[in-house]
């Protein structure tokens, strides 16, 4: 497991220029969303959480579709499987690495959101926790689907096509919880959405780990 994680972080560190490009893409999409609403600061602040998560979601398809590129280039994944490294270990290593990369991206996009939409918040730990849970929820099925689509034609189209409907609950829960953190949460409803995120993570981190073996073996 440690070797698998080390491999993931080495690979990500060597391609860090790509992570910067993904961040620029995410920030640009946040800028574009505000043009869709118009210069109405109250409306922008109202929808800030939604825009943040949509930006993060769109950027995540770039990160996820790229994450199996290095594995397929020289069939390195097959090489590891033949060592043999357990597919489960490879899955969790990759899903964890994707979570961390998306989490950092999410944290980097928060200041952009605060500046563009005037959506400041003092509940920093809560927002951090939502970002961790939300990006974990995207990564768990996203990593599996990325492994699946990397074996198909038209991979760039298929990944969002399969992933977006699936993570509707993650998007809903993350947006709601973030909104409550920004706009105030007198009824303490945010924790209910966090519980949903935790449940989604629990289900998909275990289910995808079970299914990954069938996906990567011929």
């Amino acid at each position: 497991m440690i070797a698998a994680l080390r491999k993931e972080f080495l690979l990500q560190w060597r391609t860090r220029a790509q992570a910067v490009a993904v961040f620029v893409f995410g920030a640009t999409s946040l800028l574009l969303f505000s043009f869709a609403i118009g210069p109405n600061s109250a409306a922008l602040r109202q929808h800030a959480a939604g825009f943040l998560w949509l930006g993060l979601l769109l950027s995540s398809t770039l990160t996820l579709s790229e994450s199996f590129h290095a594995e397929m280039e020289n069939r390195a994944l097959e090489g590891l499987l033949l060592l043999p490294v357990s597919p489960r270990v490879l899955y969790y290593g990759k899903a964890l690495a994707n979570t961390i990369q998306l989490m950092l991206l999410g944290i980097a996009l928060v200041p952009v959101m605060v500046v563009l939409y005037d959506a400041g918040t003092t509940r920093i730990p809560t927002v951090l926790l939502i970002i961790v849970l939300g990006t974990a929820g995207i990564s768990a099925p996203g990593t599996l689907y990325s492994a699946m689509t990397s074996q198909a034609r038209a991979k760039q189209t298929l990944l969002p096509l399969l992933l977006f409907p699936l993570i509707v609950p993650v998007l809903l829960a993350s947006v709601k919880a973030t909104s409550f953190a920004i706009l105030g949460d007198p009824m303490e409803q945010g924790s209910r959405w966090m519980a949903l995120l935790i449940a989604f993570n629990g289900i998909y981190w275990s289910l995808c780990g079970l299914l990954f073996d069938r996906v990567v073996e011929d």
Partner: peptide
């Protein structure tokens, strides 16, 4: 898989890693 090794057409190497790293990630 534990008993065999395959030298395949594809190199099984990660392009962005060094030669040494490519061997080190084999574990142990």
């Amino acid at each position: 898989r534990r008993a065999t090794a395959l030298l395949a057409h594809q190199s099984y190497l990660y392009e962005s890693l060094t030669a040494r790293e490519n061997l080190e990630i084999m574990g142990g």
